[in-house]
């Protein structure tokens, strides 16, 4: 008790005595340890052990990087499966000071951040549901899978639900002229179940599925 009160009496000077230098040195020292040494060593080891993943799990087709298996891409053409709505934006090519809608812009992840009572959100969902039904030839009151009409958190979600994929399969098959069973088989092949049997929900990787579709389609659509 007496020691505690002593420090009170000696005031703030004794409390701060001998701290200034260690404080400054510690800042630099731990910056070097935790901010430079640790990430660099991790980078070195990681690139030896997992060189593919460390660089972003890139997919190379015909010598060309076509994407990352982890990052969703924007698919608008009917012959491809479409990913979830994305609300990412990007600089307007005509006027870089303005930003325009640019779905699946991996340089600037973004979400709608609209709340459950947002009129904008409800309008968007209604519009997406309408478009989805029209595109896939569904009845005007047919239920639509929720993931098909809601924007993902990152704007880069690589997956869609199995329900969503199956509803799109008919369209893709029709446009590509493939038997629906073939497309459905591909969907099944690219459906991943829960990880290590327990974690996460069943899902379909859209980019990988579309790559497989391209490979399976003899008449591959021209790239432009």
């Amino acid at each position: 008790m007496s020691d505690v009160s002593n420090t009170t009496e000696n005031g703030i000077l004794s409390l701060t005595k001998g701290i200034a230098r260690p404080a400054l040195v510690s800042a630099v020292f731990f910056m070097v340890v935790a901010g430079i040494a640790y990430p660099l060593v991790t980078t070195g080891v990681a690139n030896i052990l997992f060189p593919d993943q460390a660089q972003g799990s890139l997919i190379v087709r015909d010598g060309q990087t076509v994407g990352s298996r982890l990052i969703g891409q924007y698919f608008a053409r009917p012959e491809y499966f479409h990913g979830r709505p994305s609300v990412t934006a990007g600089a307007d090519p005509n006027d870089p000071s303005k930003s325009i809608d640019q779905p699946y812009n991996a340089g600037a992840s973004a979400a709608s951040n609209q709340g459950a009572t947002s009129k904008k959100l409800l309008d968007a969902v209604n519009e997406r549901a309408r478009a989805y039904r029209e595109e896939n030839g569904l009845a005007p009151d047919a239920p639509v899978p929720v993931d098909a009409v809601t924007a993902s958190g990152s704007g880069l979600d690589p997956h869609i639900s199995v329900a969503n994929a199956r509803l799109q399969a008919a369209r893709v098959a029709r446009v590509r002229g493939l038997p629906p069973a073939t497309v459905l088989a591909l969907v099944n092949d690219h459906t991943s179940g829960p990880q290590i049997g327990a974690l996460g929900d069943p899902r379909v990787n859209v980019l990988e599925l579309n790559l497989a579709l391209d490979a399976a389609t003899t008449a591959r659509p021209a790239a432009q």
Partner: peptide, 17 residues
């Protein structure tokens, strides 16, 4: 359902459900 996680998916990622 078996085919989708469902729920409020606005702002969520499908792999997490």
């Amino acid at each position: 359902t078996q085919l989708q996680a469902g729920g409020n998916m606005e702002g969520k990622e499908l792999r997490f459900g």
